[in-house]
Design a protein around this nucleic acid. Structure first.
Lengths: 215, 215
DNA sequence: AGCTCATGTGAAGAGCGCTAACATGGCGCC
DNA sequence: GGCGCCATGTTAGCGCTCTTCACATGAGCT
């Protein structure tokens, strides 16, 4: 015999779902997180949300728009995480900066769905103005942190903050993309991705003249 | 009126193609290069090669195997390009090292199909032993270069070569992935990706104590 | 109470991955 | 030189996805 609940946790709903858009996003994130951005399927997200395959089209123009939406939300959460880690450079910029690096990797590791949608799914940055804006704000956070660090240097020896921010982002993304994910199949390391990035950043800062005690 | 050649360069062939595997790889690379690793379709590659949609399965178990094959070839070409740029560290390791960096970006820029298959398509490194071997050889090239540079440092101040190679790869990949592609939609920069990487590497080397004239 | 429109459903077309059964003919063997 | 094997091609078809269209439902405003 079968109880009426064929699917788990299916609070009976009427013809209208009421909160479909959010549920689709959550379903999509679950799929992306476990099967990668390509394993995700519009139809399957609909199935998980308990609606017909055509229903999602009332909320997203197409599959790519859902992906872009996830990426946008990702950048927003990302920026918040970075801002919290940076904490306005307290107690001092160097300490805060290393927290920032760890936060970057933690995000990539703990939010694979967001990170995938943001950097691996091939979503063009200008898929929507909101996406671009969210990405810009996140980058601006990195840039502000870079500026605070650079301010510790004597005037003659200050590199452009934009360049430094780009370097930081590049190295962080490189480490995260190549070694930071749990998605087996990539290279095993003698050190954790976090340690690798931390060491790399220390060397980089040293090169700028921000070595320990140099300030 | 139409000349008999409906499709360009279609030398009439019999039932058997004769060189289908190679032609499929070339078709796949064309598609990946212009539409990304997801835009590539097994069926379309077959169409480009002028065979039926089922024919590719005589040469590749499935779509992923073709992708892995492209990635493997990519790593081989990549390793050759890096080795040529490194040129055994001549005339001196620093000069050769910067050539290496430029070669990395040039490869990412000039061979988008290879680079996509290698780093963006989500092909697991152990999809085949050949793939893993090719990737390992490429990395070994970077590692050897790192070792040569490190040898310039006084004994007490030498970091692990493996770590340095990982840093170099991370930063290179980060720059290439975020800013180095022509696939519009990403961020416009006040400097070229090559300049960005060059500057980053200079700062990093400076941090290691390999600054100009420090050797 | 009645209307309207956002939000759902079902059916359907086109395309893709992949398999199975069948066709062809290049090449090695006698 | 003729024969047969089997690598390599073909056609047919299943199940799935994305997407669109016409239609159904009912929540909320007037």
């Amino acid at each position: 015999m079968s109880w009426k609940r064929d699917k788990p946790e299916q609070p009976p709903r009427g013809y209208h779902h009421g909160n479909l858009k959010e549920e689709l996003v959550r379903a999509a994130m679950g799929l992306i997180g476990e099967k990668g951005p390509n394993g995700f399927t519009f139809a399957e997200a609909a199935r998980l949300a308990g609606v017909s395959p055509a229903a999602p089209y009332r909320h997203f123009r197409d599959r790519d728009e859902l992906l872009a939406d996830v990426a946008t939300r990702g950048f927003i959460v990302f920026e918040a995480a970075l801002a919290q880690a940076w904490d306005q450079g307290r107690p001092d910029p160097e300490t805060a900066f290393h927290r920032l690096g760890r936060a970057y990797l933690a995000f990539a590791h703990d939010e694979p769905a967001y990170y995938s949608a943001m950097f691996e799914a091939g979503v063009p940055l200008d898929a929507s103005p909101e996406l671009r804006a969210a990405a810009d704000r996140a980058f601006q956070g990195l840039r502000n942190a870079s500026e605070a660090l650079i301010a510790l240097l004597p005037q003659g020896k200050r590199p452009p903050a934009l360049m430094m921010a780009l370097h930081v982002w590049s190295m962080s993304h490189g480490v995260a993309a190549l070694f930071g994910r749990a998605d087996g199949g990539r290279r095993p390391l003698p050190m954790s991705a976090a340690e690798l990035l931390e060491a790399g950043m220390l060397i980089y800062l040293q090169g700028l003249g921000l070595g320990r005690g140099a300030a």
